[in-house]
Amino acid sequence: MSTIFNGNRPKIGISSWRRDLPTFLGEKTDLFTLDPDYAKSVWLAGGIPVLIPQTSIDLIQDYVDLLDGLIVSGGGDISPLVYGEVDTGQSYDVNVETDRFEIALIHEAAKRNLPTLGICRGLQLLQVAFGGKMLQDLHEKFPNHPKTKGSAEEILNQRHVVDFSEDCMFAQIYRSTHHIVNTIHHQCVQSVGKGFRPVGWSEDGIIEAVESETSWFALGVQWHPEKMKSPQEQELFRYFIQSIDHLTKKKV
């Protein structure tokens, strides 16, 4: 893991979303993509964003060698096969190869104590990687939770409330145990993975934030802070990168 000295920006790997999109090469062009808001948030917080494409699992150790921190980003649903469930047909944009690659990346990050932040799908992968379970359609259990329907603007403008444990990092980051977030998901974590604890919940009881209970600095959120324009949301990225700086200096 590279070292942060003399104001050098830490290198923050961000997982990419592999999907088929129309280009001049055809209607379904296989691409690694990333919402630029992730890169912008990392840059504004003091880091250098580094896109991580899904390649060979054999390269994961080399990826981690390059990085000071890792963000597991949003994207398609996780295949139920990965967390030992029957696919009921309610999961979308699944890619088992990507799931397995990113889970292997998470395991290597944990092994190396590489600071890690999971966002939406990233939170879910952090839990599945360590035995957590998912609800393939959260609305079967939480029918009143906002649905991801309507125009892009309508979906991005939906909000709901999350309440944090008083002793968690998020209460410190947002200086409150009560926070308003966006709603861009139709699945959720049913049970957390080994080594994590839930620390934030929606009003109807969905797990919305988790943090590691071990020496590994890892946390995750179900919402998309990079898509919220409030300056307060930038505090999560700033806290993450400042923590990397602090943890690195402790090792020197």
Rank of each mutant, 00 (worst) to 15 (best):
K141C: 10
G26W: 12
S79E: 11
T98F: 02
K28C: 03
E166L: 08
P10W: 06
T183H: 02
G200E: 11
I173E: 03
Q127N: 15
V199E: 03
Q61R: 13
I78S: 04
R121N: 12
V181M: 00
L44Q: 10
G47T: 07
S230M: 01
R238M: 13
K249W: 03
I180E: 15
N6C: 10
W216C: 00
E153L: 09
H178Q: 13
E235R: 15
E154H: 13
H160R: 08
L219T: 06
K250S: 12
F217M: 08
R18E: 03
Q222T: 09
Q187P: 10
Y63D: 11
V96H: 04
V210T: 14
L25W: 13
P49N: 00
L59H: 13
V94N: 03
K133H: 09
E154L: 10
L156S: 08
K141H: 11
L219W: 02
H178P: 08
S2R: 12
E211L: 05
Q190W: 05
T116S: 02
M228G: 04
P49R: 00
D204Q: 14
A104V: 13
D163P: 01
Q222H: 10
G118R: 06
F237L: 01
I155N: 01
I52F: 03
Q158Y: 09
Y83D: 09
I244C: 00
L21W: 04
H246K: 14
V221W: 01
G46I: 07
Q187N: 12
H160Y: 12
L247E: 03
T29S: 09
F142R: 05
K229W: 09
D65I: 14
S79H: 07
L105Q: 12
W43L: 02
R112E: 00
K133Q: 13
S215L: 01
M1I: 09
